Amino acid sequence: MRPALAALLLTLPLLSGCATDSGGAWVELRGQRYTVEVADEHGERARGLMFREQLADGTGMLFVHDEPRPLAYWMKNTKIPLDIFYFDASRKLVSVSRGVPPCSLGDRCPPYPSAGPALYVLELNAGQAGKLGTQPGDEIVFGPGIPERGRP
Rank of each mutant, 00 (worst) to 15 (best):
P13Y: 10
D66M: 07
A56G: 07
G17N: 11
A56C: 00
R45Y: 01
A39I: 07
G48T: 01
R33G: 00
P68E: 07
L15K: 09
T59W: 09
G48H: 06
T35P: 03
G58C: 05
G24N: 15
V36D: 06
H65L: 09
A72Q: 06
Q32L: 10
D21Q: 14
A56E: 12
G17R: 15
E41R: 12
G31K: 07
T35Q: 13
E53R: 15
L14G: 15
L62E: 03
D57L: 09
G58H: 01
Q54A: 15
G24Y: 04
G17E: 15
L29F: 04
G23R: 14
G58D: 05
T59Y: 01
C18N: 11
C18I: 13
P13T: 11
Y73C: 01
L55G: 00
V38I: 11
D66E: 15
M61T: 03
V27E: 07
E41P: 08
G60C: 02
H65D: 10
H65F: 15
Y34F: 15
V64C: 00
F51G: 03
V36W: 02
A25K: 15
R30Y: 04
G23Y: 13
G60V: 00
Q32G: 02
A39E: 04
S16A: 14
Y34E: 05
G43W: 11
E44F: 06
T59C: 04
R47P: 05
L14E: 10
R52E: 10
G58Y: 05
G58E: 01
V27G: 02
L55V: 03
D66Y: 04
G58K: 03
F51A: 08
E53S: 13
V27I: 09
G60K: 04
P13A: 08
G23I: 07
E41M: 14
D57N: 08
D66V: 09
M61R: 03
T35R: 12
V36R: 00
G58T: 00
Y34C: 02
D21N: 13
S16N: 13
W26L: 01
T11N: 11
E44H: 08
W74C: 04
E37A: 10
G31I: 09
E41Y: 11
E44S: 10
G60H: 07
Y34G: 01
S22F: 15
G43Q: 13
E44K: 10
M50W: 00
T11H: 08
F51W: 14
A46D: 00
G43A: 15
P70I: 01
L29C: 06
T35F: 11
A19H: 12
L14V: 14
A19W: 14
